[in-house]
Simulated assay, not measured.
Amino acid sequence: MILPNKLFSYNDSILSKLPSILFVLDTPKSPVEILRLCRNIKGPVELVDILDCLYALKKIRLNDKGEIQRC
């Protein structure tokens, strides 16, 4: 997980990408759909880090279909 520090600025960290994921989740979506819609995410590893962070903050959850939705 890349957090802002002396080496990485806020814009390079995953914290700057949290709002873009939440904005896309107006309806439940699969991780593949989220990755396609968010152009500022570099790859699936970064997406998993962002989703882990959002889940820990209780901002997203998985529904019965395995899709990600906002809380």
Rank of each mutant, 00 (worst) to 15 (best):
I2Y: 14
I2N: 14
I2L: 14
K6M: 10
K6F: 06
L7A: 13
L7M: 10
F8P: 10
F8C: 11
F8L: 12
S9P: 02
S9L: 06
S9N: 03
Y10I: 01
Y10T: 00
Y10C: 04
N11E: 15
N11K: 08
D12R: 07
S13H: 03
S13T: 05
S13K: 00
I14D: 00
L15R: 00
S16T: 09
K17I: 03
K17N: 04
K17P: 07
L18I: 04
L18G: 02
P19E: 01
P19N: 06
P19C: 03
P19S: 08
S20Y: 09
S20T: 11
S20D: 11
I21P: 09
I21K: 06
I21A: 09
I21M: 11
L22M: 04
L22A: 02
L22E: 02
F23L: 08
L25Q: 03
L25N: 00
D26H: 04
T27K: 03
K29M: 07
K29D: 00
S30W: 10
S30K: 14
V32H: 12
E33N: 06
I34S: 05
L35V: 03
L35T: 08
R36V: 12
L37S: 09
L37G: 01
L37Q: 09
C38F: 03
R39W: 06
R39Q: 02
R39F: 02
R39Y: 05
N40W: 04
I41G: 07
I41F: 05
I41A: 07
K42N: 12
G43R: 08
E46S: 00
E46K: 07
V48T: 13
D49V: 08
D49P: 08
D49L: 11
I50P: 03
I50T: 07
I50M: 02
I50G: 03
L51E: 07
L51S: 09
D52I: 15
D52A: 14
D52V: 12
C53G: 07
Y55M: 13
Y55W: 12
Y55Q: 14
L57F: 05
K58F: 10
K58Q: 13
K59Q: 10
I60L: 05
I60A: 01
R61E: 15
R61S: 13
R61F: 06
L62V: 13
N63G: 07
N63T: 10
D64P: 11
D64H: 15
K65P: 10
K65N: 14
G66I: 10
E67S: 09
E67L: 15
I68N: 00
Q69F: 11
C71Q: 13
C71I: 15
